[in-house]
Design a protein around this nucleic acid. Sequence first.
DNA 1: TTTT
DNA 2: TTTT
Lengths: 168, 168, 168, 168
Amino acid sequence: MAGSVNKVILIGNVGADPEIRRTQDGRPIANLRIATSETWRDRNSGERREKTEWHTVVVFNEGLCKVVEQYVKKGAKLYIEGQLQTRKWQDQQGQDRYSTEVVLQGFGSTLTMLDGRGEGGGASSGGGRGSSNNDYGDDYGAPAPSSSPSRGGGGGNFSRDLDDDIPF
Amino acid sequence: MAGSVNKVILIGNVGADPEIRRTQDGRPIANLRIATSETWRDRNSGERREKTEWHTVVVFNEGLCKVVEQYVKKGAKLYIEGQLQTRKWQDQQGQDRYSTEVVLQGFGSTLTMLDGRGEGGGASSGGGRGSSNNDYGDDYGAPAPSSSPSRGGGGGNFSRDLDDDIPF
Amino acid sequence: MAGSVNKVILIGNVGADPEIRRTQDGRPIANLRIATSETWRDRNSGERREKTEWHTVVVFNEGLCKVVEQYVKKGAKLYIEGQLQTRKWQDQQGQDRYSTEVVLQGFGSTLTMLDGRGEGGGASSGGGRGSSNNDYGDDYGAPAPSSSPSRGGGGGNFSRDLDDDIPF
Amino acid sequence: MAGSVNKVILIGNVGADPEIRRTQDGRPIANLRIATSETWRDRNSGERREKTEWHTVVVFNEGLCKVVEQYVKKGAKLYIEGQLQTRKWQDQQGQDRYSTEVVLQGFGSTLTMLDGRGEGGGASSGGGRGSSNNDYGDDYGAPAPSSSPSRGGGGGNFSRDLDDDIPF
DNA sequence: TTTT
DNA sequence: TTTT
């Protein structure tokens, strides 16, 4: 279906140190639990109330997984941009069950640390090596030129070069 | 600054057929004008009112430019995801002027056609070849199911080369 | 927790005519199923492939429910902005089950029709009466120009009453 | 135009203490300068590079202005959700000039503090009194019930009450 | 300059 | 169960 968008944006805190698993062929997958919450004052009692929502975030991306592994700890505040995905599985009784997760996998998925812990700063799944919308990974060799778009693991440049002289 | 986000999401109609320019080294740049509008009923008179906002969108990405060139015409309804950028220029009197544009260049930038015209359907700046948030590039493997996540390798160029001098 | 964000943005098609239920005290709740999908060309076979994701959207808002009731039909293309919520329930075996839904309830929730069917055009949960991000409620004054900002007064109910017991 | 969206999401730091002006009839308007930036490592030199983008944010909303006035200081990290607006003005030579700003005014506009300074936590422009997606203002009396949607300055409840018994 |  |  052309013309569809599936985007989740979360800012919240990580509930526990992330789990990093590996697939059989060695690729990492990180699982995070992120809490968002809303607070308000009760209309009648005047008491402060809060509701917390927990989100399961699954990171299928080597670069982002590295950032998660190195920098994301319990309590970290993150900005997450991913997609909603519901997967079907079977419980021990053989019944169909569904789990909905926020998946960071494709283009446009991003994970940024908002509390300054770690040096990673941010990362997106664009390059497979922790390149970021905001902060290219330290192991980021070079943005891919337009003319060589698909080097394995290539990243990209995200903004015009300030030092270029670009009259327009 | 780690931990920053600069994102613009627009759904609107294209005001005129796009202009496609080329840099000296041949890379395309597309310019679009997109209208968004709000309507409301006047509180006093009860009349229906409307306010239209016009946005300048600049596409620095070969893949997205191809989509624009082939499919985007005056009147098309688009979903756009880009970044805010303000550039400084000088008018004929030599005075500093500033123009703010929605730039589709970096990671996470997307352009999707919402009215079914053209076959392009959608595209994002991830792959430099019209690959899409919704339409993976030709050399891009399948999206990973939850149980077999995508290889990290798929990168791509996202835009202009940081090191180039690009007069246009 | 101050400083959290929980936002889902979807553009997709409605899979079936919406169901509208009512709470005991008469407030409507609309349920929608919305499909988003991604297409790509298989890296090896070159075949076009597609993956569709289905989302359950729950509208707790009188104004938005009216729009849904009047205008949203099977096949409609919608822009949805809401929140992720997971609720716990018990199956017939008494086991805990969880369902994650995109809830349109609070501030910032929006539903806009993208295919021009119906006159409703758009709506947000801001005003409780089908007012919109793009379409101010009837008792809502004009959007303020930059030089004459809007009165602060315009509020509204955004959803279900916190203090109510709402079985449904 | 039905079906349009105009949304800007920024996470960045405030460049200077905000300016709060007042209209002739006493309503506040806050002006903020917010920096977002991207960093990357230069492909050739390997040097770390950074590009900062400055955004002008204008808050037309009493509740949000109060939050800005009380809590937002130079250096604060904010999450902002607003709209792009370009306004026309004339310079001293009588020439037309245009300025594009991120305006927080209508439903869906939000401002949330991300660095924990201040108690305000967050605020959105929904209620005119600093109600928030995440953190209702302290002077927030009560969420508006669905049955009285438009009390002056009324806000809303943003989530289901945790303590309600809501089987569904 | 779009669209409804 | 949608859509292209």
